[in-house]
Design a protein around this nucleic acid. Structure first.
Length: 287
DNA sequence: CTATAAACCTGCTGGC
DNA sequence: TGCCAGCAGGTTTATA
């Protein structure tokens, strides 16, 4: 599942390789992947344009064009963007963008959940009005996180994957951030004390930075712009580790469902209520 | 307003 | 060995 680190890593790759290139033509093979415009208008809107910049907002990849338009790509569950040589092909190609040097930017997506859209750059603020702060931006402070969590009665895990609270966290990094902070996923979001919010802030920023550093988390699908897997999976501490020993205390990792999503946590390191344990386990801080 | 649930999709897993 | 129900989850839309 592409989350912020997977989108950011590919954005950096495409920035090096795509900026300055002219688009020869675009072909849509799965019309429902295009949002807003009809397929002919979408294809015509890309043909002949030069890529001027690459950006990212939350899980959206932004490809800026020389006429003031922006191509938005959201990969949802199984989408990938791959820069392929002219003679290379891939399965599940939904959209193909041919560049002036013959290479193709391929949007592949077995599940067909991902969406592409073409917008004017000046429309972006309105389009992203409901998105929360960028967690790697300096403006994302402990206070900013606390303000977003205040008044929310649902579980903290559900709040973290809500894009209006923080932009870019998905199921993997939300579970990882809660583990680093030592917070139980079912804790009401508004019940965290200031120290816990600070620990969670550090956890969020930490897991996202690590994810980018390791080229993203690959389970079955995610690949980068050159078709390579990310290595962050081997650095995950709870996600998809059900039954395996906690790296901190050895207790088997548990899996529950929170807000319709599989949620992984250590029942010893992440207590349901602070200081409500048997006294057997010590509270520890992630370093 | 908040919040919960279904729908969108198809490859993969696990049970029999 | 083979079949198939059910799971996986980001976002939008619908409903309570």
């Amino acid at each position: 599942m592409p989350e912020l680190p997977e989108v950011e890593f590919v954005a950096r790759q495409l920035r090096d390789d795509l900026v300055g290139r002219r688009i020869r033509r675009a072909e849509v093979f799965w019309p429902r992947a295009i949002q807003g415009l009809g397929v002919p208008e979408f294809e015509a809107g890309l043909a002949g344009r030069v890529v001027t910049a690459i950006g990212r907002r939350g899980k959206y990849l932004l490809i800026y064009l020389d006429d003031g338009a922006v191509l938005l790509v959201h990969r949802r569950m199984s989408g990938n963007l791959r820069l392929a040589a002219s003679d290379e092909d891939e399965p599940y190609v939904r959209v193909a963008v041919t560049l002036d040097d013959g290479r193709r930017l391929l949007y592949t997506d077995p599940r067909k959940f991902g969406r592409l859209a073409l917008a004017r750059a000046e429309e972006l603020p309105a389009l992203f009005a409901a998105l929360g702060p960028e967690p790697l931006d300096p403006s994302f402070t402990v206070e900013a996180l606390a303000a977003r969590l205040a008044g929310r009665r649902g579980p903290i895990k559900a709040a973290l994957v809500d894009q209006s609270v923080v932009a870019g966290l998905g199921n993997i990094y939300a579970d990882e951030a809660l583990f680093r902070a030592g917070i139980h996923p079912l804790r009401p979001a508004s019940s965290l004390d200031p120290a816990e919010v600070a620990a969670l802030h550090m956890g969020i920023v930490g897991v996202l930075r690590a994810g980018i550093e390791h080229g993203g988390t690959t389970f079955s699908r995610y690949r980068d712009a050159y078709g390579e897997s990310g290595t962050n999976r081997q650095h995950l501490e709870v996600y998809q580790r059900t039954g395996e020993p906690c790296i901190r205390c050895g207790t088997p990792i548990e899996r529950i469902v929170v807000g319709q999503r599989g949620t992984h946590f250590c029942p010893s390191c992440q207590r349901a209520r602070p200081f409500s344990g048997t006294g057997q386990a010590r509270r520890r801080r992630a370093t």
